[in-house]
Simulated scan of single mutants.
Amino acid sequence: MDLKQSVIAITGAGQGLGQMMAITLAQAGAELALIDVNDDGLVDTQAQCQMLSAKALTYKVDVTSETEVVQAFRQIIDDFGHLNGLVNNAGVLRDGLLIKYKDGELSKMSLEQFNTVMNVNVTGTFLCGREAASQMILTGSKGVIINISSVARAGNMGQSNYSASKAAVATMAVCWAKELGRYGIRAAAIAPGIVQTAMADQLKPEAIERLKQMVPVARMGEASEIAHAAKFILENDYYTGRVLEVDGGMRM
């Protein structure tokens, strides 16, 4: 795909990986549809993209709401005329052990804690992927869908909900590649290791240090390195149905 004047939608575009991906793609000449629930973050990302002379429009959307997602992708087509790519980046963490028993006290991961992560990370990815693919097909646009997974998809202590969600979005990307190829739509996933973002900042310092020790390159990843991976997938027309691990050699 030639990114110049291609229209790429990015969820979770108001901060972290989403913001860096938007800036990276703007530098490559893409036009951006920026999606998030955070108004201030969207405005910030939009301003940075516009400084690079890129067309960038914002859409305040709760990705767990089918109505809002359907409306947003229809509006993107009204605003841009077509859609060539989607980066499904929106996600949340609500870490905790499944069961914790200490000093005679038993605590459990709550259903709300589990469902919040699954709704945003899995349902949101499903809804946005479905609507992006629908609009690509209706407008006759070849395109690419990238789901942001995680090295945690292999299973990580204290992340039953997050690990399950990231395994699910990786698997969905493989399914979509097989289903959508006939329409000229590719699908893939990126599984980052621990990356320096606001989400990583939610982890306890001791957890971050433990994770760093598991990384052969002995450091956290940079958001720009994950953005570069997304750019590669978008530009390489033979890449589909695979999960690209960008984790510094880390293995869970």
Rank of each mutant, 00 (worst) to 15 (best):
A200W: 04
V7P: 11
Y239N: 09
E235C: 09
A30K: 10
L17R: 04
D78I: 12
L17W: 02
L203A: 12
M214W: 06
A227E: 03
P192Q: 03
V246A: 02
R74K: 15
G221Y: 02
R242H: 07
E209H: 01
L180C: 05
F73K: 11
Q113G: 11
A230V: 10
A207C: 06
E222L: 13
S149W: 00
A167H: 08
H82E: 13
M20P: 02
K108A: 12
F126P: 04
Q19A: 11
H82G: 12
S163E: 01
E179A: 03
V246C: 00
T171E: 14
F126T: 10
K55R: 14
Q202G: 01
K4L: 11
I76C: 07
L98W: 07
E209A: 11
L83Y: 10
I23H: 02
A13K: 09
T58S: 14
S150E: 03
T11I: 08
V87M: 04
L106I: 14
A189Q: 01
G41N: 08
L97C: 06
S160M: 08
G249L: 01
A227G: 05
A33M: 12
V92N: 06
Y238N: 10
T123Y: 12
L86P: 01
A132G: 08
K100G: 06
V87N: 00
V87F: 03
Y101G: 01
L83I: 14
A72F: 08
I8N: 05
M21H: 10
L203F: 14
G85R: 05
R210I: 07
A177Y: 00
G193R: 03
K178P: 01
G124W: 01
R251I: 12
V63H: 00
Q213C: 14
